[in-house]
Design a protein around this nucleic acid. Structure first.
Lengths: 260, 260
DNA sequence: CGGGAACTTGATCTCGGTCAATATTGGTGG
DNA sequence: CCACCAATATTGACCGAGATCAAGTTCCCG
């Protein structure tokens, strides 16, 4: 029971949120039943029909921009990157998604709008997009939850634009570390030390920086005593408050499973 | 009747889209009635109760980040910027919104998540957020339209992240010009020459560049013969295809009124 | 262990930021 | 309608953060 109703939210949205958060991924259809008004079990089963659970290994592609969209994915385990690439090889990671988040939801005219790539081994549940939309149309709670997830994602990308457009390299890296720390903490994955699961190159693609600059910025933060480095993937946050200050991280808004 | 159903979209969404697009802003409640299933007129009136039409002059604030949210705004005339600022004065314009778009929809715990500022004189219709949500909960078409608008905004910000993170200054400016051109064309405002309605500083805050760099980049594009400049606000696109190439603008996706 | 990939570190270069004059411009009042 | 002026834009000179190029070094993983 991780997600409680934010104070002042209409009741329906809170329930719907939980519904999306614990969108049934397995055969555990029954589990979702007690979360809101009695659902149409047959339709739920239909909703799950096309998908079921799938697995990807690190670096494998969940979906490719431009490919016809059939289903979107709700991550159960692992971390995934949503990105967009240019012909010349430049690419921008647009979001990092963790268990509970959905990816592959956005389309242009029935085709995936972004790329999805596994940053670790990933287990996810595929939902037929059409079926889901139809189902959501009949279930206001779920529709509200979708809107809430999209709104959350939009706030995140707005913040990300501020990071990319205004922050210096070291500020960006500090921000990134805070963000990942908060994300993993929120989803109860990892602990201390923080394990990034992202190479310097992937971090660079997320922050609009080169491998070398990411590495140097990490070095600066370490030298300043704000973090410690364990291997290349492990980070110990020694001075969280200062790190957040450097990264211009505002008061943490209550996080919500997001979609992309 | 600008928005037609994208091929392959479920019918409900197309209708809902139109509904949001022509969300009643005036006393013209009746006009929306024929767009979808008969709406509850009393509720619609309640929906409009708190708001009505409001006007802002250029540079005035529509809403401020952190202020308690009461209503969001559907732009009827003029252009508005949605932005986010840092304590130290740096700010990032996160979206430029035109007639038909909604702004001020995103909140953190009942407070506006971004700033809204009028780039020209603006006329907009205010909707009570609570009332709207409640109304949307009972009208699946409208709920779907909200999701569609949010999805559209999310795709746009994803693209914007690519621009901020990967493009060089002149590429960014070229991209910006194409984007504004397409936006104004889509909303049937302006013509030739294109009137930006944004100072170099505002463009800079959108693209993560300084005033001087924006100016120089414009100069380069002019020297290359891709654009002409008329005064400081007017732009003639001379070589649209080349401009789009420089700005790394992919095949234009069908645009949809967006929310932020 | 051994070897290849990823990371760090250093040297240099370049794009865009900063600072500083001009030059336009567009709004205002005569 | 024109002259003036404050705001904005352009242009130039210089500087510095971050990119690029190039070695080393560490870290995995077989």
């Amino acid at each position: 029971m991780n997600f409680t109703a934010p104070p002042g939210q209409p009741r329906g949205i809170a329930v719907g949120l939980k519904l999306l958060t614990s969108l049934p991924c397995d055969r555990c259809v029954g589990r979702s039943l007690n979360l809101c008004r009695p659902l149409d079990d047959a339709r739920l089963r239909r909703l799950l029909a096309l998908g079921g659970i799938r697995h990807w290994k690190r670096h494998e592609t969940l979906f490719r921009a431009g490919d016809p969209m059939t289903s979107f994915f709700k991550i159960r385990k692992g971390i995934a990157a949503v990105s967009r690439a240019l012909d010349d090889g430049r690419r921008q990671i647009v979001a990092v998604r963790a268990p509970g988040d959905c990816v592959g939801y956005l389309d242009n005219d029935g085709r995936y709008a972004f790329e999805g790539e596994a940053l670790t081994d990933v287990e996810a549940c595929a939902f037929d997009r059409r079926g889901f939309d139809a189902f959501a149309a009949d279930h206001p709670d779920l529709a509200a939850a979708v809107s809430e997830a999209l709104s959350s994602a939009l706030k995140q990308t707005g913040q990300a634009m501020l990071v990319l457009g205004q922050l210096k390299s070291t500020e960006r890296v500090a921000h990134f570390l805070c963000e990942i720390d908060a994300l993993y903490r929120d989803r109860h994955i990892g602990g201390t030390p923080l394990v990034l699961h992202m190479s310097r190159g992937e971090i660079g693609d997320y922050l609009g920086l080169t491998i070398e600059t990411v590495s140097r910025s990490m070095g600066k933060l370490k030298k300043r005593g704000l973090i410690g480095l364990i291997g290349s993937d492990g980070v110990v946050v020694l001075e969280g408050a200062k790190l957040r200050e450097v990264g211009k991280v505002g008061a943490a808004p209550a996080s919500v499973a997001a979609a992309f």
